[in-house]
Every structure is written in structure tokens, then in C-alpha cells.
Design a binder for these strands. Structure first.
Length: 492
RNA sequence: GGUUCCUUCGUCUAAUGGUUAGGACAGGAGAUUCUCAGUCUCUAAAUAGGGGUUCGAUUCCCCUAGGAACUACCA
């Protein structure tokens, strides 16, 4: 039997790390076993639904390079793949269960249910949940309630005795007493929309899903789903509950831990390959020593057996490390084009960039690449190039172990050595040597010469290396800035 | 509270019924380069606790502790 798996998110918010981890595991499992990866949109919650979320789902998967074999947009033989377009199907199946006596109409108002819940909590009753008030209504009673215009929900009859077991590839057998399963859960809401449980089970069956890979938070509803499959007389698919992605404190990863939306990571300048590589390594590993895995490699070597049982904490620092590694591995051209939007947004270059600006960005890549954890770091790194904000505090120019006079000499003499050398096309190493011997003469450390010049050119103590900076600024502008610094030191 | 699940360095993880319990990130130290970053070297750091089974257990079993998820006309 060919593997068919699905990622079935609900478009009620931006795609987050946990979600795409589930998507990735499904996708890699499908690819590595020659199966199909299906995307299904579970938009049955009309209150939390948003168009923006749906767009974010598509654009996030697209950015990550995850293509679905069947689903919205691309279609497929089991469509439609958006649950709100399958409305009639759920109603039909729910009513079928009612006809067969496996489910029933319930007319209880939300108010009554609320009151019931309150009482159960207050009395610390062992019995929690719906009291099956409508389970045995007579036809007359039902007709009366219908006449009042009350729109009923459909509830599943959950057995009160016995137990239900399902097998999970990762967890093994999981058993739950039927009396502990949420009593008579709603399958069809009063607005005619299905709940997750109903729609999910029906669609997974109708779409021929063979393996259900989803987060462990769904384990508690496993037995309920099995009950539903049995009620319909359908074969239960293979379950595979994925370990959760937690925050630093061991709780489900959420906003208070930091960024969780893929969109945010993307905006900050994380590369898709870094996200994919790192996220896949939370809850899964190839062999314990392989760190770098490309999407293509994972499409081949991903094995379900290597998925862990225990939840994993999301480590932002390790993601940063992966990202900085991938930035360095990427081609200069690619990084240049990725960097451009950040520079435009900072107001450093025009949109679209001029030829001259493009050239500058291109030159910037090499020295900047090794210094970035995320692409947005480029703004701080390249500020000196586009915004000239000279440092007027002399102390900033003075290196440790140097003084006012020596710093001024370093600027004047160093500048002369530097620019004369450059005009004569001397090798940078040669000029560097000469600057070093200047330091010796001035009796300062090497930095005593370099720091003032660097600060003069880059307006900062922390900057790109001197020669890179000059290359970027150009000799005339560099000289201008140096001259300005010398004048500063000539004052008073 | 109830139900279910989980437990190897701070974090992600590897390994085996017999190893000096391995790797990576983060941390610390040092080297190097004009600052920063980087790179290189070194370093510290774990089998939750208690019982069994066994010649031997981190590995198998039980208990305890800790943690998590679920407990909606949300998914």
C-alpha cells in the first residue's frame, strides 16, 4: 500500500514552528517512502478563520520549498481539499450515524452546558463533561424542541464500558477506558459545521490517508477517533504521534518564548534551509553526529523509526548557529539579492537599487557574510557606508594604551602611508606592514594605529576590517572622512 | 482534580546487558587576525531517585519523584 500522509493545519493564525515541524515530518516521510504528501485546510472554525492565515500557509510552505502532491491550488483526485467546501459530506455522514443509532441530536443550550460545567467543578464531581441529557429523547420531545426553533448538534454515543486501544508507531499501544473518553463529543455543530474530530476522521478516510502523523497533543483524542472509525466501519490508519516542540521552560512553545511564526523568522533573515535543518533535528536525528542535512538529503534519509518519544526544547541559539553557517555556505550572489530588501527598508539604497548601489551591495557581501547571524544584521554592519554620522568624541578614536597625541599622529602619518600606498597600488599586506612599523615608532600597539583610522572611516569602534571598508567607501570618500578626523584632533 | 504520555551533559541528541557514556549548540580558557565576528585548540558538563532481574544495567521490570499534554458547539 502506497504511503499517503497529510498536513492538515487550521488557518487561524500564522504558521508556527510546531506546525511546520509536523509538515516537514509528514513531507519527508512521504518523500522517503515514495508516497504522497497531501495538504488539507481544516477551516471549520469560522470564528477564528482568517484569509491572512491561509495566505501565510501557502507562502510559508512555498518559501520552505515544500510542494504538496494533492491539495488546494494543485487539486487531486480526492478534492476538494478545503473542509469548508466539503460541508455536505460531513452532514451526510453525521446523519448516517444518527440513523444507525450511533449518534443523536442534542438540543442543550450553551447556557445549560455552562451551568452544568460550573456545577461539576464546584462539587468536584468525578464525572466531568456532558451528562447525556439528550441521549434518549423520544420523537415527540424532539419534535417539540425542533418546533421551538432550536438548532441541534449531533453527538456521538461513546460507550460507558470497555476500553479502546490504538497502536502508535512511536508510543506503542495506548489504551483508554471508554468511560474516560469525553462523554458524547459533538460531531456536528449547530451551525452545521463539523468539529475537528468528525471532519478529520472522515477526510482522512475518504482521502486514503495511511499514516496520521500529528503532534502528541492529539494523543488524548486518539481513542475517540478510533471509536469513530469503528462506528463508520472503516479501517483505522496507522498513528504516529510526534513529540512536541517546547519552549525553554518546558512548556508548549508559544509567543512568550520568543518568535514562533515562521514569518517572523523569515523577516529577521533566517534562511529556509536553516529552519528546515534545525527544526527537523528537534525530535528526530539521523545518527547523532550528522549536523547538516539538506532538504534533498532529508527527502531520502528520513526514517520514521528515528523519531523520538520525548518532547524537545526549541533552542534559538542553535538555530542562529545553523543560520550563520548557511549564510556562509550560500553564494555571494544569492546573499546579495537577499540583503537588498533589508537595505532598502533601512533607507540605505533606493528601490529598485541603482547599478552603483547594486555594486556596493555586492562588495559588501564578502566581508559581511562571516559576521551575520541573521540577514537583518546587515543594517548595523553596513550603516557606515550609507549614513555618514561622524564620531565627535575623541576618546572613541584612542585605542587602549595610546593617547591623544599618538592618536593624532597615527591619523596623520597612518593616513599618509595608507593612501599613498593605495595610490601607488601597493599590496595591502605591504601597507599593513608599514602601518605596523608606524605603530612601533609611535610606541603603541598595532591597534593604536588601526583603531583611529577605522573609527574615522566607519564611525564606529566595531566595524569591518580597514581595507574592506576602504574598498566599500572608495578612496576619495575614505580620505575625506580621515581628513575630517584629523581636523577634529587639530581643534583646541 | 481526572486521564494519557515522557525522563542521557544547561539544550538537541548518540550508544551498548560489559565504552574513558560519543557528537553538536550554548558556557569557560587559550591561540590568531587592525576592532568585531570568524577560525583553530583546549576545558567543564549527563544516564532523576529507590528497589529488583543479572556475573554485570544507563540499557529489562517495578515503585517514587519531576515534567508535559488533554480535559470546548477550538483545532
Amino acid at each position: 500500500m502506497d504511503v499517503r500522509v497529510r498536513y492538515a493545519p487550521s488557518p487561524t493564525g500564522l504558521q508556527h514552528i510546531g506546525g511546520i515541524r509536523t509538515a516537514l515530518f509528514n513531507y519527508f516521510f512521504a518523500k522517503s517512502s515514495g508516497g504522497k504528501f497531501i495538504l488539507r485546510v481544516e477551516d471549520t472554525d469560522r470564528e477564528r478563520y482568517s484569509d491572512e492565515s491561509l495566505e501565510d500557509l501557502y507562502s510559508t510552505l512555498d518559501w520552505l520549498g515544500i510542494k504538496w502532491d494533492e491539495g488546494p491550488v494543485v487539486g487531486g483526485p480526492y478534492g476538494p481539499y478545503i473542509q469548508s467546501e466539503r460541508f455536505d459530506i460531513y452532514k451526510e455522514y453525521a446523519e448516517k450515524l444518527v440513523k444507525e443509532g450511533k449518534a443523536y441530536y442534542c438540543y442543550c443550550t450553551p447556557e445549560r452546558l455552562e451551568k452544568l460545567r460550573e456545577e461539576q467543578v464546584k462539587s468536584k464531581s468525578e464525572y466531568q463533561g456532558y451528562d447525556r441529557h439528550c441521549a434518549n429523547l423520544t420523537d415527540e420531545e424532539r419534535a417539540e424542541l425542533e418546533k421551538q426553533g432550536i438548532k441541534p448538534v449531533i453527538r456521538l454515543k461513546v460507550p460507558t464500558t470497555g476500553k479502546t486501544t490504538f497502536h502508535d508507531v512511536i508510543m506503542g499501544d495506548i489504551t483508554r477506558k471508554n468511560k474516560d473518553i469525553s462523554p458524547d463529543p459533538i460531531l456536528l455543530k449547530s451551525d452545521g459545521f463539523p468539529t475537528y474530530h468528525l471532519a478529520n476522521v472522515i477526510d482522512d478516510h475518504l482521502m486514503g490517508i495511511t499514516h496520521i502523523m500529528r503532534a502528541q497533543e492529539w494523543i488524548p483524542s486518539g481513542p475517540l477517533h478510533v471509536l469513530l472509525y469503528e462506528a463508520f466501519g472503516w479501517e483505522v490508519p496507522t498513528y504516529c504521534h510526534l513529540p512536541m516542540v517546547m519552549g525553554k521552560d518546558g512548556q508548549k512553545l508559544s509567543k512568550r518564548h520568543g518568535s514562533t511564526a515562521v514569518r517572523e523568522f523569515r523577516d529577521k533573515g533566517y534562511l529556509p534551509e536553516a529552519i528546515i535543518n534545525y527544526v527537523t533535528l528537534v525530535g528526530w536525528s539521523l545518527d547523532g553526529s550528522t549536523e547538516f542535512l539538506s532538504k534533498e538529503e532529508l527527502e531520502h534519509c528520513f526514517k520514521m523509526e528515528n523519531i523520538h518519544k520525548n518532547p524537545g526544547k526549541f533552542d534559538y541559539k542553535k538555530l542562529d548557529w545553523f543560520n550563520s553557517q548557511y549564510i556562509r555556505m550560500a553564494s555571494d550572489d544569492r546573499i546579495a539579492s537577499l540583503l537588498t530588501p533589508y537595505l532598502v527598508k533601512a533607507g540605505f539604497i533606493s528601490d529598485p537599487p541603482t547599478k552603483e548601489e547594486e555594486e556596493k551591495v555586492r562588495l559588501l557581501v564578502a566581508p559581511a557574510k562571516e559576521r551575520m547571524k541573521v540577514l537583518s544584521d546587515i543594517v548595523e554592519l553596513s550603516k557606515f557606508l550609507f549614513k555618514d554620522e561622524p564620531v565627535s568624541d575623541k576618546d572613541v578614536y584612542i585605542a587602549k594604551g595610546s593617547d591623544l597625541v599618538k592618536t593624532k599622529d597615527a591619523l596623520v602619518e597612518g593616513g599618509k602611508i595608507l593612501f599613498d600606498g593605495l595610490r601607488e597600488n601597493k599590496a595591502e599586506e605591504k601597507i599593513e606592514e608599514e602601518l605596523m612599523s608606524l605603530a612601533e615608532r609611535l610606541e603603541v600597539k598595532v591597534n593604536g594605529v588601526f583603531q583611529p583610522i577605522r573609527v574615522a572611516l566607519t564611525n564606529s569602534q566595531v566595524s569591518l576590517p580597514l581595507f574592506d571598508s576602504i574598498r566599500l567607501l572608495g578612496i576619495p570618500e575614505s580620505e575625506r572622512r580621515l581628513e575630517r578626523a584629523i581636523n577634529l584632533f587639530k581643534e583646541n
